[in-house]
Design a protein around this nucleic acid. Structure first.
Lengths: 170, 170
DNA sequence: AGGCTTATTGACATTGAATAACAATTTCTT
DNA sequence: AAGAAATTGTTATTCAATGTCAATAAGCCT
């Protein structure tokens, strides 16, 4: 019984779903579209930066992104990165995640489930998590205060197990 | 029955509670104590700044606090404010609440239930709320990732009803 | 109370992220 | 292919936040 159902869902259902869904467009396609809608231009510099950002699913800040690109021999000016970021945010491809050590940190969100961050105050390690309760809270807040909710940021700050142990040693 | 209970809880219980509880110390008392424990000094400048911060239950940033104090004829240098803030944070009297428009914003937390913020992206209006589900999430996270949880920040961002209406007019 | 140690202050200088200005270049439309 | 306008990198600028330092003052000790 269970096997049959599992079998069914693993073979027929995806087929049906695919029949109704278009292929998911890439970040670059999304962004080209965004640029066109806003009368902006697609340039090699922008493409290079976007490819770098989306080559991993890591948090980044402008400076480390710039350094990483230089190490790979890809030369774009920092100004171009700074100028691109607000566009990527407007296009819903990245978002600010937190401000730490004097600079804003971002991550890409397109194609990833929204998640929140648990951060270690000592070593700055980051764990990602998601919890459907936050979405509930969001929804209730929107109704209560008459807001159109756009997004949320939940940061939980603590001390990771390693740093707790370290603290004991000293 | 219900009336009697209500009556009881409104007369005897607070009396008992008061008998076991000391008067809640003021922010200044807390801070003096903190300074003493750390071999630091209590100065008129620090007192002035703290009085200003705790005179209202408002969010603040260094610049507007400085301006407000100057308008009242209280002259302390900005440097002293910047130097005081980390101490107030360590003493658990204030905390960072969000980074916006290029500067960090703080609020005082001593004597206030922890709460989170719903912010309007357009007019920067802020609503405060609290929800016990966040505490639950926190607790579960600590257990799951083996973190000692210190605090959390939940920011919900949206468009308030006024700004939604404004958007329709244009 | 007075003296001594050392934290604190304010003024000024510095850092560093983020933004602005601008001339040269490139994209994209017609 | 040409022209309008956006984009680029360079350079300069802004501004929050921090560091430096000499003068001052808090707080401890006798």
């Amino acid at each position: 019984m269970f096997l049959k159902r599992a079998n069914f869902s693993m073979s027929i259902v995806p087929f049906i779903m695919n029949a109704n869904k278009k292929k998911k467009p890439s970040e670059l396609e999304i962004f080209r579209n965004f640029l066109k809608r806003h009368g902006l231009r697609y340039t090699p510099e922008r493409e290079t930066i976007i490819r770098e950002i989306f080559s991993t699913h890591e948090h980044f800040d402008v400076d480390s992104l710039y350094i990483a690109m230089r190490h790979k021999g890809q030369r774009v000016s920092k100004a171009s990165i700074y100028r691109l970021i607000p566009l990527l945010i407007k296009a819903n491809l990245i978002e600010e995640v937190f401000f730490d050590s004097g600079q804003m940190h971002y991550e890409h969100i397109y194609g990833h489930e929204h998640h929140c961050h648990l951060r270690c105050q000592e070593c700055r390690r980051i764990e990602e998590f998601s919890d459907e309760r936050v979405a509930e809270i969001e929804k209730e807040l929107g109704e209560k205060f008459n807001y159109k909710i756009l997004r949320h940021k939940l940061e939980v700050i603590g001390i990771c197990s390693r740093c707790q142990k370290k603290a004991l040693d000293t």
